[in-house]
Computed example of a mutant assay.
Amino acid sequence: MHGPVSAAWLLVALCAATGAYCLLRMRSAVEEQRRAAGGEALMGFGMAVMAVPAAVFTPPQWAWPVYAAVFGAAALRALWAARVTPNHLHHLVGTSAMVYMAVAMAATPPGAHHEHGGAGLPLLTGALLLYFAGYVLRAGARLLPAAVAASGAGAGAGAGVAAGSVRWGDRPELARACRLSMGIGMLAMLLTM
């Protein structure tokens, strides 16, 4: 991806940390939680690798088709899972966006930068930007009620005990924050295309 080096390293750190947390979430006792966390870990680490500044490491041209194939397989898995659980539709969009970016990087000659000149913003990039901007706003808004409830506003002593008994890897607000981080990362990556 092209963009300022310091922003790229921040994106690498955000995505790698999110991927690492998702790996920890895979230890959950809830099977659906483990499956979702596995896909999110793949996305986090894949985004971290893709965001490494080109000045530091430029993958060989053969890496992009491999990248597209890995995320294409993840997209097919998300499509299959979406027939049962609609929550996987977001995973489908995310993995498809990763395939799109890998194909765009494969089509770019080594050392060249994307130039959108008079053609403007490609339609698919614009649609993905709109989707992820909406997703980030929605995911951020979903975290607000959890933060208010956790602060103790209107909650009794029993609510704190119930929240404390949940393992930190199974906490829904942490999973939402993880998804929000990846949405922000995806938005940043799409902006650099």
Rank of each mutant, 00 (worst) to 15 (best):
A7E: 08
G19P: 03
C22Q: 13
C22N: 10
R25L: 09
S28R: 08
E32Q: 07
R35K: 06
A37F: 01
A37E: 02
G39K: 03
E40H: 15
L42A: 15
F45K: 08
M47Q: 13
A51W: 12
A54Q: 10
A54I: 13
A55W: 04
T58G: 15
T58D: 14
A63Y: 05
A69G: 02
L76F: 03
R83F: 11
V84N: 00
L92T: 05
V93G: 00
M101K: 12
A102F: 14
V103R: 10
A104W: 06
A107Q: 11
A107S: 11
A112I: 08
H114G: 05
E115D: 15
E115C: 12
E115R: 11
G118M: 13
G118V: 12
L124N: 00
L128C: 07
L129V: 04
L130H: 03
L130Y: 04
F132L: 03
G134E: 01
V136W: 08
L137Q: 04
R138T: 10
R138M: 14
R142E: 12
A147M: 14
A155F: 00
A157G: 06
A157F: 03
G158I: 04
A159H: 07
G160L: 09
A162Y: 08
G164D: 13
W168I: 03
W168T: 09
A175I: 07
C178I: 05
L180V: 09
M189Y: 04
M189V: 06
